[in-house]
Design a protein around this nucleic acid. Sequence first.
DNA 1: TGTACATCAGTGAACGCGCGTTCACTGATGTAC
DNA 2: TGTACATCAGTGAACGCGCGTTCACTGATGTAC
Lengths: 227, 227
Amino acid sequence: MSSEEAVPRRRRRNPRGQGQVLKTELVEAAARLLATLERPETLTLRQVAREVGVAPASIYGHFPDLGALVQHVLRLRYDELAAVMRTAADGTEGPLADLAARCAAYVHWGVDHPGPYRTLFGGGMPDELVPTNAHGAGEELLGSVVASLAGAQQDGPEHRDHRGPEQEWQAGLLLWTALHGLVALYNAHGNMPWPDLTDLIAQTLALHTGRPVAELVELARTADRPA
Amino acid sequence: MSSEEAVPRRRRRNPRGQGQVLKTELVEAAARLLATLERPETLTLRQVAREVGVAPASIYGHFPDLGALVQHVLRLRYDELAAVMRTAADGTEGPLADLAARCAAYVHWGVDHPGPYRTLFGGGMPDELVPTNAHGAGEELLGSVVASLAGAQQDGPEHRDHRGPEQEWQAGLLLWTALHGLVALYNAHGNMPWPDLTDLIAQTLALHTGRPVAELVELARTADRPA
DNA sequence: TGTACATCAGTGAACGCGCGTTCACTGATGTAC
DNA sequence: TGTACATCAGTGAACGCGCGTTCACTGATGTAC
């Protein structure tokens, strides 16, 4: 920690056509800092510049301000989360397995990326920067949970009376809030003695689907280590 | 909004024995700002001083730094929440009603006080300032939920096989995470079209207790407007 | 009853810091003639 | 083949700001003699 940041590592100016490389370096640096910082919402423009080894003013050539850069990074992270959930569900058999895979992926991504998760869903950032608020993109994510859950419940043993899309949406929303609460508290209070995370996911899914816990523990576990 | 903050409202110096009145004014001002600010974690010492109409240096006579002041306020808010839940449960009949009252009180307090709620449970503040982390005081709150839930389940119709305190604690934890997720997302995404909050609480409780929704809607509603 | 003194409650100016943003600039690289 | 020029990619110094914290101070009020 002594001379690590002392010399601000000289960087070569990029050659002519390569103006984009600094842009991606900025994005990567901001992403790294958002993931690393204890309080990602305190990220500053000058921190990003230092991390890349560039003058603060150089950022303005690529982004109008720090907000735009953060927004860009959050959009990437959000897309990443959506993709992780999608591929987790790929190749599962039946709606219950699909649901379990998606939800396990969501929670694990959340606890593996506490910084980005907090900036995305924690409400710490100005509303307009966050993709889940900005263009209703959060509803895409929510939509997939709603759909999977509805499928898993129809598939269930107790074929409840027909429910409208209204009820399905509410059920999905409730499941999402439960998963969010799990991730948020787990990340915020890591010093507490937490039970096994996969058990908690399975338990939550059992409650929301009405299926036996054991079955969901099984599904959630296989979702953890994909074949 | 024009000349509102322009004149920094002169205040009379307190007389001799009354050194405490500024202290309480500071606490009230900090509480007001923490409740009001869009991002309560950005509160500054000078903001508090301005709000009271006092020199920034004057705060040091009462608190070693802003952190201590915030910690003090958060402790008060936490105690307030605990008290609200306790009195909500007072006079209820049976563990299920007790549980419903406590949980409804928790959620409503959370959405009525988004600023304090976020600073208490949102993970935005440095860990050591937050009572839920600082002295394990959060477990007091969690403990009451665990106990009520265990009571409500034993009381339930389907008398499941005996569960250890381990399972009871996990069940309570899971309920807490669900409630927290509800409050957190409700506050963070107020622009979304949310279903009726009491319905969501009742729905959540129904899932976690295994009791019919209708019964819990009833209990949650009466908990909203205490007799 | 008067006066010197201590204490209390808070002031006001100053400090050094990191911040976002601006501005004129630099120096390498490609292009036109 | 050489040279003037445009452009690109980024620099470096400066600005004004709000911040936390310090320090010597002030002025009213109580207390001792």
